[in-house]
Nucleic acid binder design. Structure first.
Lengths: 235, 235
DNA sequence: GTCAATCTTACGGCAACCTTAAATTCGCCC
DNA sequence: GGGCGAATTTAAGGTTGCCGTAAGATTGAC
């Protein structure tokens, strides 16, 4: 999941105009994975089948009350839900939030407000658990600080890019051991392991340019032919 | 002021039942410094005399409209005000908030909701127990005094705006470390951080205009691509 | 020597970032 | 309230540099 706008959104409302309005606005804002449903029944099956990342739903639906719907959804999913409601009653609001709704917008609303709240919920719920601190270690005269994404060498500070940092982290976690190319790709690019072999080599080359005296005869980041790479930390 | 529940609360409502209900609930929740008034006139004198920390007041009072009352109060006090209203109209809400009300609860309400909002307002208004002294530090030829919100450079004094100050503070507290854009937004704008990315950039740009020789090639407030920003203090 | 694996370099796309200006909101004084 | 200047946000277009691709060179195993 690269971007917040890659999230899948389900819109549940029985009024076609509202559905289209919301969908249109969200698309204009850059969301592109949008589902829609007009009633609770189909909403429920979309939730099961497509597993959207968030649902925007009207409280009043033709076949089922929104609060019952969220209860049903909670049986199998903890996806965030943002309610739309024409009523301004506080009981509804509290009930909704109490049942696990994440926010609540009163109709009529400005598209922008819906947007703000949607983004807020997505950020809150899917906020990446950032590891507090990343390691810092020495390679001969080179000091590698992954926290600062920086290599220190001879008074110089050389910045590391995110990919370089990710690769070095994976290698450092397995220092002295061989890390397969697949494992490295997995660590940096995620599960969909396409043919990143070549790309990986290029990145390794770039890392070597930053942490090796002679990048062509590496001392620290070694190639293990046929298997992968290995980071040698000890002197 | 030790605790949030040591705050003095004024309840203004002409219905004795409502007054008692709110007061009872608040006492049960641990508040103990509670004043009550049945009309705008006495509310005003309580505000003058006892200087409550917050007022909960009905919009409809026998002698005066709540909005006029808040205007009168604003003449001599900036105490937070939380409105109760039987009308659910947004105009009222906006008007109230625009006039300096801090929140707004629609009757009928659940005591718990009033409570939540009351606490929220108190926290928001009184939490930033402004740290007495803010740091002052040197960036090359630039002296940054966050206390005075001023940059000194070549006999010149350049004022910092509140946002600029907030950002610089957060950066200074993490000097030498990378501060993510999210963390910066959070520090200055609060939790619901969305769409501030661009705004942040603009502010960074303006800060750079004040503390960098060449804002396009910053020496102190550096960009860390893909991560955030970093303040380099040491020379 | 041959072949496959790995290295090396260069280049273009694209997202992240920058920059500016205009629009809007905020805060203060009257 | 209304008006004014400052502060902030929005918007639009420009720039930069990370990253992925490809193509040719080199290395190591057999």
């Amino acid at each position: 999941m690269e971007h917040i706008k890659d999230r899948k959104i389900l819109i549940v409302d029985d009024e076609p105009d509202i559905r289209r309005m919301i969908e249109g606005f969200l698309r204009k804002e850059g969301f592109y994975r949008i589902y829609a449903a007009a009633d609770g029944g189909s909403a429920l099956s979309v939730c099961r089948a497509d597993k959207p990342d968030i649902a925007i739903m009207d409280v009043m639906l033709p076949d089922i009350d929104g609060f019952e719907l969220i209860t049903a959804i909670r049986q199998f999913s903890s996806m965030p839900v943002l309610f739309l409601s024409a009523r301004g009653e506080d009981e509804d609001r509290l009930l909704g939030l109490g049942l696990g709704a994440d926010d609540y917008v009163v109709k009529p609303f400005l598209p922008r407000e819906l947007m703000l709240r949607l983004m807020a919920v997505l950020k809150r719920v899917y906020a990446p658990a950032v590891p507090e601190s990343l390691p810092c270690f020495q390679l001969g005269e080179y000091k590698i600080d992954l926290e600062l994404a920086t290599v220190f060498h001879n008074e110089e500070e050389i910045a590391l890019t995110p990919k370089e940092r990710g690769l070095l982290l994976k290698l450092y976690e397995n220092q002295g051991r061989i890390v397969t190319s697949d494992a490295l790709c997995q660590a940096v690019w995620g599960d969909d392991a396409y043919s990143y072999e070549n790309t990986l080599m290029v990145h390794v080359r770039r890392i070597r340019a930053k942490i090796e005296q002679d990048p062509s005869r590496p001392k620290y980041l070694l190639t293990v032919r046929g298997l992968g790479y290995k980071l040698v930390v000890k002197e």
